[in-house]
Lab assay of single mutants.
Amino acid sequence: VTVHVNRYTYHFDNPEEAEKFAREMAKRLNMTVEIHGNTLKVE
């Protein structure tokens, strides 16, 4: 599972951890999480 935050890319083996990380980053940056299959984008 890949998480994109701005120009950074993070890889996770565990989808739940990836989503938790993405949501935490989105909250911190006041952004939203978009899910595209195995890719989560924080925008």
Rank of each mutant, 00 (worst) to 15 (best):
A26K: 03
H11P: 02
G37V: 06
E17V: 08
E34L: 15
F21S: 00
I35G: 05
E24F: 09
Y8S: 09
E43Y: 15
T2S: 08
N6E: 10
T2C: 11
E17L: 10
G37W: 05
M31L: 11
E17G: 03
K27V: 11
T2L: 10
E24D: 11
R28I: 13
T32M: 11
A26T: 02
L40G: 04
T39H: 12
I35S: 07
D13N: 10
E34Y: 15
Y8M: 13
V5N: 02
M25T: 11
A26M: 03
E34W: 11
H4S: 10
E17Y: 06
K27E: 14
D13T: 11
R7Q: 13
K41S: 11
V1N: 05
D13Q: 10
P15G: 08
I35R: 13
E43C: 13
K20G: 05
A18T: 00
V5Y: 08
D13A: 10
H36L: 12
A22N: 00
V3R: 00
A26L: 03
K27W: 09
A18P: 00
M31H: 05
L29S: 03
V1H: 09
N14Y: 06
R7F: 12
Y10A: 02
K41I: 15
M25L: 14
L40S: 04
L29A: 04
H4F: 07
V33D: 01
T9K: 10
M31D: 02
T9Y: 09
V42E: 03
I35E: 04
E19Q: 09
G37T: 05
L40C: 03
H11C: 09
N6I: 10
F21R: 00
V33H: 01
A18R: 00
Y10M: 03
F12D: 00
V33M: 05
N30Q: 07
F21Q: 00
F12Q: 00
L29T: 04
T9M: 10
E43G: 15
L40M: 13
G37I: 06
L40F: 11
H4C: 08
M31E: 03
I35T: 07
N38R: 04
K20F: 08
L40W: 11
K41W: 15
V3Q: 01
M25S: 04
Y10D: 00
E43D: 12
A18I: 01
T9V: 14
N6F: 14
K20W: 09
M25V: 14
M31C: 09
V42F: 04
Y10C: 04
Y8T: 12
F21N: 00
G37L: 06
D13W: 09
P15W: 15
A18S: 01
R28V: 10
M31V: 10
Y10W: 11
K41H: 13
E17D: 12
K27A: 13
V1K: 04
D13C: 12
K41G: 04
N30M: 05
N6V: 07
K27H: 14
H36R: 10
V33A: 02
M25R: 02
A26I: 02
N14W: 05
R23P: 00
K41P: 03
H11N: 06
K41M: 12
K20A: 13
E24W: 13
E19M: 15
T9A: 09
T39D: 10
T39E: 10
A22W: 02
V3F: 00
T2Y: 11
V42Q: 03
F21V: 01
E17K: 08
I35M: 09
E19S: 06
T32N: 09
L40R: 01
V5I: 13
E34Q: 15
H36G: 05
T32P: 05
E16N: 08
E34D: 06
F21Y: 04
R28K: 14
M25W: 13
G37D: 06
A22D: 00
T2W: 14
N14T: 12
V33N: 01
V1I: 13
Y10T: 02
V3S: 01
P15M: 15
R7E: 13
V1G: 03
E43I: 15
R7P: 06
P15R: 15
A26V: 02
A22R: 02
R23T: 10
L29F: 12
N30S: 06
V42G: 04
R23Q: 11
T32S: 09
V5R: 02
V42N: 03
N30A: 05
H11A: 05
Y8W: 12
A22M: 03
A18K: 00
R23L: 11
T2K: 08
N6G: 15
T9I: 14
M25E: 12
K27G: 11
V1E: 01
E19R: 08
E16Q: 11
N38G: 07
V5F: 10
T39F: 08
E16C: 06
I35V: 12
Y8P: 01
H11M: 08
A26G: 04
Y8I: 13
R7M: 12
V42M: 05
T39L: 11
N38C: 05
H11W: 14
N14S: 12
E19A: 09
M31Y: 06
H11F: 13
V33G: 01
T32H: 12
T32K: 14
F21G: 00
R7G: 15
N14R: 07
F21M: 01
T9N: 05
K20R: 13
V42D: 03
R23C: 13
Y10Q: 02
R28F: 10
E34R: 15
F12N: 00
N14E: 07
Y10V: 04
E16Y: 12
V3L: 03
K41N: 10
F12T: 00
E16P: 04
Y8H: 14
N14A: 06
E24V: 06
R7L: 10
Y10G: 00
V5G: 03
F21H: 01
K41Q: 07
Y10F: 12
T2P: 02
E17F: 05
M31K: 04
N30Y: 04
A26F: 02
V3P: 01
E24I: 07
L29V: 03
Y10E: 01
E16I: 12
E16S: 10
N38I: 05
Y10K: 03
K27M: 12
Y10R: 02
T39K: 08
R28M: 13
V33Q: 01
E19H: 13
K27P: 01
Y8E: 14
P15E: 07
